[in-house]
Amino acid sequence: MTLAFDPTTGLVSPLVHGLFQGSAYGLLGLGLVLLYKSNRIFNFAQGEFAGVAALVAYLFDTGSKGLPKVPYAVAILLGVAAAVLVALLTERLVVRPMFHRPRVVLLVGTVGVALFLIAVEGLVYQDIAALRPIDQALSIDPIFTRLDRVPVLWSDLAKLIMLLALAAAAFLFFRLSRMGTAILAVSQDATAARAVGISVERTSMLAWGLAGLTGGIAGVLLAVPPFSTTPGIFTGTILTTAFAAAVVGGITSLPGAFVGGVLVGLVQEFASADLPLVPGLGSIRGGGELAVAIVLLGILLVRPKGLLGSET
């Protein structure tokens, strides 16, 4: 029997693409885990924190809409700062007034924020906006290296490295720092936290600020070609899968956001690649999604708390 393609390349391509696509899920998933750990909130606005950052960075990088054109690095920083600001406003105007309501009310509140942000993004910009990737800004070759003829892009590598760095930093923050421990204390027993003198309002602001930061970083890393930003696209295309990935990793586990994201990315890519291992699956429409669904359900049946379990 002869194969229609080189089987080695057949493995490398989905491996590389799965890893990087998974990094995208992981980057958004990290913010979801952060807020779930802190507040037991599912934040549906996380995708649009990324969307806002991408849009603001794009507008400043290109000097559109009457905004001044600024250096690339400054535009990126402004984009991330915008996401942090939006996250802090979300905390102050939506989350805090509903703090003592059932968690499902808060969830709907964050859906409201997502829809509101999509609407505002639409008012500002209706076209497709793709951010210049880092290689273009630095005028270097976009290809970092080739693995068995499959190109590995700088902009993809940046996603993976940043995801690893952020997941590790967030993990250490909760493990070692005083403020991180205080956030965990509030999530475990808010009354006791107040009794020892922790300000529940301040830890909540901090958690949302960090979620905004990771969301913003996700936005400026992901909104590069071939992906492009239109209002709501993060919520529409990445958020749902990021949620699933975060839950599979263990929704209270920061390393789990990484593990879950990459796992989902790999399953998706391997299932939609036309591998001889699973003949024909790649040719089914939605085969990748189907495979992800089956793997996710399987994992959750065996490990209901996700792969990395609780509070790591």
Binding site: T181, A192, A195, V196, E311
Partner: peptide
């Protein structure tokens, strides 16, 4: 300082971290 009715320890933090948090202020 208050020791609350029902104890209210932070269940998923170590004894050490519970005590550390007592010295928050």
């Amino acid at each position: 300082a208050i020791s609350l009715e029902g104890r209210h320890v932070f269940p998923k933090l170590s004894v050490r971290k519970n005590l550390d948090l007592g010295a928050w202020t």
